[in-house]
């Protein structure tokens, strides 16, 4: 498996055994100095995550008394996880469920809409196509958060605030995803193939689902990955749209827990915020590592057609 992935990930630079000598610039000697410098950066990347992992094993008292990058007196990871999941009648699980709902419907819908639209823009020349480009390009430059307040007021007038739709509907649009799919579909789908399907009498929608979609899979996975990350991480939109803790996603819920530590009647639950943070990261890291295999070939597939 790993060899095929390696070969696929570098289609334009085949690993030739003979011919090229080891010192050739095309297959240079590995450098310890460069590796060492990259290791330094790796440490910077990993230290905060290591801190989080270690801190999740500590009780609140140990957090305050033990060194940051080592274990505390008691190993409390499992009791921390249990407390996180049961605190306040298991509100954390509720937030996790909400996040999953927003991710599945929001990111899934965004990927579907972007894929269809990217395909439509790449493969059909219809009146108004250029106007679509112009409007999209203009809109992408407008900062998303500049839209947040007016979107809130609009949704408030429509009675959509404090419903799941306030989060899902705005998540459905990914101009960046559309751009990626448009570029990808332009290259990945030969016109002749579509013409052949048309001659066979297939309708346009059927062609999309049976012929085109299959060729678009690596691009779709890439767009889906970014849409999932964006929806899972969404903070600003739910923060302004939702005031009922029952509808919060994990991000807003965790900051609410963190805010408990200050102000009148402070009830710090640092250990739960830290353990909750760890639990929030894990599914996304797993999803990312899992999808990595797919979009690794997805990224290179675009460069096969040199």
């Amino acid at each position: 498996m790993s060899t095929t992935t390696l070969l696929r990930s570098r289609p334009s630079r085949p690993l030739k055994g003979g011919g090229v000598s080891r010192t050739s610039p095309l297959k240079p000697r590995r450098s310890r100095l460069l590796t060492g410098m990259m290791l330094l950066y790796l440490v910077y990347t990993l230290v905060p995550l290591l801190w989080l992992l270690l801190s999740a094993t500590k009780t609140q008292d140990d957090l305050l008394s033990s060194p940051g990058l080592w274990f505390g007196k008691t190993f409390a990871l499992f009791s921390n996880i249990q407390d996180t999941l049961t605190y306040d009648d298991g509100i954390f699980l509720r937030w996790l469920g909400n996040t999953l709902l927003y991710v599945v419907v929001g990111a899934g819908g965004a990927t579907l809409l972007a894929t269809a639209a990217g395909y439509g823009l790449a493969k059909y020349k219809f009146a108004g196509r250029r106007a679509v480009f112009a409007v999209l390009l203009g809109a992408v430059a407008v900062p998303g958060t500049a839209l947040a307040v007016p979107t809130f007021l609009m949704f408030s007038n429509l009675g959509l605030t404090n419903t799941v739709w306030a989060i899902i509907i705005p998540s459905l649009v990914s101009p960046f995803g559309l751009y990626l799919m448009w570029v990808y579909a332009s290259d990945a789908i030969p016109h002749d193939l579509l013409e052949a399907a048309r001659i066979d009498g297939a309708g346009e929608i059927r062609i999309f689902f049976t012929v085109a979609l299959r060729l678009l899979v690596p691009g779709v996975v890439t767009v889906l990955l970014f849409a999932v990350v964006a929806t899972w991480n969404n903070y600003f939109l739910p923060l302004i749209m939702l005031s009922k803790p029952n509808l919060y996603p994990l991000t807003v819920g965790l900051t609410q827990w963190s805010n408990q530590a200050t102000g009148v009647g402070a009830r710090p639950i640092y250990n739960l915020v830290i353990t909750g943070s760890l639990l929030t990261i894990v599914p996304l890291v797993i999803a990312f590592l899992f999808l990595q295999r797919f979009w690794q070939s997805g990224l290179s597939a675009g460069s096969v057609k040199q």
């Binding site: 809409l113 972007a114 269809a116 639209a117 395909y119 439509g120 823009l121 493969k123 059909y124 020349k125 219809f126 009146a127 196509r129 679509v132 409007v135 999209l136 809109a139 407008v142 839209l147 007016p150 979107t151 609009m154 509907i169 705005p170 459905l172 649009v173 101009p175 559309l178 016109h191 002749d192 579509l194 013409e195 346009e204 929608i205 999309f208």
Partner: peptide
Amino acid sequence: GFHRDSKGWIFVGPFLAVFALTFLAP
């Protein structure tokens, strides 16, 4: 071979409808 007709709107339409609601209207 570039397909010339308005059927492209079938694919672009849904995206644009949501786009209009969440970008242009605000």
